Amino acid sequence: MAGMKKPESIVQTAGYCGGCGHGIIQRLIAESVEELGIAEKTIAVVDIACAYWSLDALNFDGIAGPHGRCASVATGIKKVRPDANVYVHAGDGCSYVIGLAETCFAAARDIPITMIVVNNGIFGMTGGQLCLATTLEGDWTVSSVKGRNVEDTGKPFDVLQMLKSMDIEFAARGAVYDAKHIRELKKYIKKGFENQRDKKGFSIIEVLSPCPTNWKMTPVQAMEKIKDETEKIFPTGVFVDRGGAK
């Protein structure tokens, strides 16, 4: 049965914390790439952060770009290797804060890459600091120990709603808190790779993902938080599909 066997592209375990969503996302990437038969021409671009572990775990060519510059690095690779399947696997701090300009300009230029952005509401690898784009109002982080105060930091903002105004190929948001949402997320990720295979434009898939370690929660509590709180601020679904359903 499809999905029951470990993808061949996963060649060793990764160092993600227990309950982290990155491992689920990594598997969905591997399954999608193998099902499309494009593993040999896949190039991963990861941030110097949690997704870095996937360079060891996945048998793809890959590179870690400077912090926050994944979209620019992926753009450069796609320009010199136009037939490659180039994707970004990075966090919200990288893609929506430090690298917001790079993400927006890759979208504005409709670069035919696939960005997978992990929204876990914090800067994960550096200790769990507040992420201006995604930390929810009132949430505790190591840099908002009394909870996020929007009078000081502004409110979280929906980057996909911003990108929606640009002429891009595909934008969607999924989640990993239950099997139904994981199945839906895989469709989005696979669609992003199909768009690239078919010489279409910029695709971005955001993923609502838990970080039990930095949220100071159990894995179960972290998944419940996504369902009960995060998804209300960042709704899942398709935001842009220029090509439409097949």
Rank of each mutant, 00 (worst) to 15 (best):
G192H: 08
D167T: 04
T103S: 15
D158P: 02
K187L: 04
T153H: 13
M115C: 10
T134Q: 01
I122Q: 02
G128I: 04
K155L: 08
G128Q: 04
A101W: 06
K180E: 15
A171F: 01
K164A: 06
P112H: 10
I189F: 14
I189E: 15
L132Q: 09
I111A: 03
L132G: 08
K146P: 11
V159M: 07
V145K: 14
T114H: 12
C131G: 02
E169Q: 15
H181P: 14
E151G: 13
T126A: 04
N119K: 06
V117Y: 10
D152W: 08
A175Y: 11
C104I: 14
K200C: 10
T135G: 02
K187T: 06
N119M: 11
G147E: 08
E102C: 07
M115F: 01
K200G: 11
A106F: 10
A107E: 02
P112I: 11
I113D: 00
P156Y: 02
G192I: 03
M162E: 09
V176E: 06
L132P: 08
A171P: 03
K146I: 12
Q129S: 01
T141G: 03
G128Y: 05
C131K: 00
D139Q: 15
G147Q: 12
R109C: 11
G154P: 05
M125H: 11
T114A: 13
I113S: 00
V159T: 06
M115Y: 01
S144M: 14
N195V: 01
K180W: 14
E137W: 03
M125Y: 09
N149K: 14
M166Y: 13
R173E: 14
R148F: 10
E137L: 04
G154L: 04
N195L: 01
P112D: 12
R183K: 11
G201Q: 03
D167L: 04
A179D: 15
E194R: 13
I182P: 00
I168P: 02
A106V: 10
P156S: 01
T135D: 05
E151V: 13
G124H: 02
G121K: 00
I182G: 00
M125K: 06
S165N: 15
Y177W: 12
K190F: 14
C131I: 03
Y188H: 06
D139V: 13
V159L: 07
F157E: 04
A108Q: 12
P156M: 01
W140N: 08
E184V: 08
V159Y: 00
R183F: 15
D152A: 10
A106W: 09
A171R: 00
N119F: 08
A172S: 04
D110W: 06
K146Y: 13
K186T: 02
E151K: 11
E102P: 09
K190I: 07
D139K: 09
F123L: 03
I189T: 05
K146H: 13
S143R: 01
I111R: 01
S165A: 13
G147I: 11
T126Q: 05
D167H: 05
L136Q: 10
